[in-house]
């Protein structure tokens, strides 16, 4: 049997679906830094960030077979899951009067578990980590306002209406800016390759 470290993310997840805890450990070793970093960036405190990491891997263990995770882009799925968990925790911590829904299995399936395009490119964390410089360059190619709206949306968890309120610009402008920013980011990244 091949070493777990030699397996791709998808192959690793396939092992996880067979209840191979060592495979999950390998996945933890690969993903924990970026998950922890992202969680720490978004979550209100360090303890929350740690909880997010534990929750993410619990969900991977629980949902891998159910969602046929080995056939999806594992990297995109895990990062999106981490971001969704962190934003949810952030929103709940923001206000005691928040009217967020009760966190149960249904809520988790509807708003936390990512839904990905089936035509998404299968990214590998090892490859992505190698492309760090390209990503930075692509991001630097955006205007400040474009970076800011992406930051507000991705890291702060604001929706369009809330961004409109913060920036005091029309909704159509916010939508257009987000769309332009992402498309330019894509263009910058892929043109850079």
């Amino acid at each position: 049997m091949a070493e777990l470290s030699e397996l791709s993310d998808n192959e690793l997840v396939a092992e996880i679906t067979r209840n191979k805890s060592r495979a999950l450990e390998e996945l933890y070793d690969r993903y924990s830094p970026v998950i922890y970093t992202l969680a720490k960036k978004i979550a209100p405190d360090e303890k929350s960030a740690e909880n997010i990491v534990v929750d993410v891997f619990s969900l991977i263990w629980k949902k891998a077979k159910e969602l046929n995770l080995s056939n999806l882009c594992v990297y995109t799925w895990i990062i999106t899951l981490t971001r969704n968990k962190a934003i949810d925790m952030l929103k709940r911590s923001r206000s005691a009067e928040a009217t967020l829904d009760y966190y149960d299995d249904l809520y988790e399936d509807n708003f936390i578990i990512p839904v990905l395009s089936e035509e998404a490119e299968h990214l590998d964390i090892k490859q992505v980590s190698k492309d760090k410089e390209k990503i930075e360059n692509a991001l630097n190619g955006l205007t400040d306002i474009q970076k800011y709206v992406i930051h507000l949306a991705f890291y702060e968890g604001y929706n369009i209406n809330e961004i409109v309120e913060r920036l005091g610009i029309p909704k159509e402008t916010v939508r257009a800016k987000i769309n332009t920013a992402l498309n330019r980011l894509c263009d910058n990244f892929y043109e850079g390759s």
Binding site: T37, T80, S117, L123
Partner: peptide
């Protein structure tokens, strides 16, 4: 869906711009 996949992928690359931290 191809375009959607591209957008979803690029967004998830953003965390790698951050200074990576090892968890405790």
């Amino acid at each position: 869906y191809g375009e959607l996949g591209r957008l979803q992928a690029i967004v998830t690359m953003l965390p790698f711009v951050l200074e990576q931290e090892q968890p405790p």
